[in-house]
Design a binder for these strands. Structure first.
Lengths: 141, 141
DNA sequence: CACAAATTATTGGTGCACCAATAATTTGTG
DNA sequence: CACAAATTATTGGTGCACCAATAATTTGTG
């Protein structure tokens, strides 16, 4: 590998980073971050999830989730409730404010997603997604 | 967007993350991280670079570079030298230890790169890289 | 030439991400 | 049933990444 720019891993990282910055920018108007959006998205789908299940679904370490949930609680978007049946578990629920953000945040992220893949046609996106998925699976172990 | 997994940004992030973990794992045997490798790589190409030029080349914020260079100095791989012509500037040089790592580290990362794209043929990689580059350029404002 | 503007590197603050260890609790096996 | 093993969430430590502000120095313009 002559130049670092020719390194596939480097290229992938830089592309991801640029895309991610775009999401950050738009979401910052709502005072949240991309990863916080993904958590809210799971909760709009189904409330009362365990933090460990959220972590697994998002492929994040359990210890990564804790401070992110803290910030969502602090911003009044979610709340932790003890599971009455198992005292180890915190179930995560949306607040009213968290529920209200569903439509505006989804609209915003739809826009971001569109602008990100602007200039690609349907078929290209499909191939691209397939490649990303295949590449990801390649790394499992 | 029904499920978060269908979000293109999310998929890209997760794929990058998995790939990046593979690099981390292998490089940890040398006590360095992927971003530290990229900096060393630039220095093997040309010593005595300004930190701001390293940052630009790697698309990193200047303030991100400082602590990474600190750690490389601490691990005895590089050293900062004052530019005699401009006292604002620190020029970054490799130590002997930093130079010695060129071959083993490059070999290691070549292996990682190969294992990452295993199962893809030449043509697919070319298309993939082109798409990543195009997508990246798409984000530049 | 003086002094505002630009450049360079750093500091301080925030927010992910990991791993290893811990505490509280529940599960499951002898 | 007792108690080791498993589960859940958290804490503490490390390492990127950003932005805004700062300090030191150099450049460039009136």
């Amino acid at each position: 590998m002559e130049k670092i720019e020719d390194c596939f891993c480097f290229l992938l990282g830089k592309t991801f980073h640029k895309v991610s910055q775009k999401g950050k920018e738009r979401l910052s108007n709502f005072g949240i971050t991309p990863v916080q959006f993904t958590i809210l998205h799971l909760l709009w789908e189904k409330e009362g999830q365990k933090s460990i299940d959220i972590a697994k679904r998002l492929h994040l370490d359990g210890s990564t989730i804790t401070p992110i949930l803290d910030r969502l609680v602090q911003n009044g978007l979610i709340e932790r409730r003890h599971d009455p049946k198992d005292r180890r578990i915190n179930l995560i629920y949306l607040t009213e404010k968290g529920k209200e953000l569903e439509t505006p945040l989804n609209n915003t992220m739809d826009e971001v997603n569109h602008s990100v893949i602007e200039g690609f046609d349907e078929e290209e996106i499909k191939v691209f997604k397939k490649m990303l998925t295949k590449l990801g699976l390649n790394q499992e172990n």
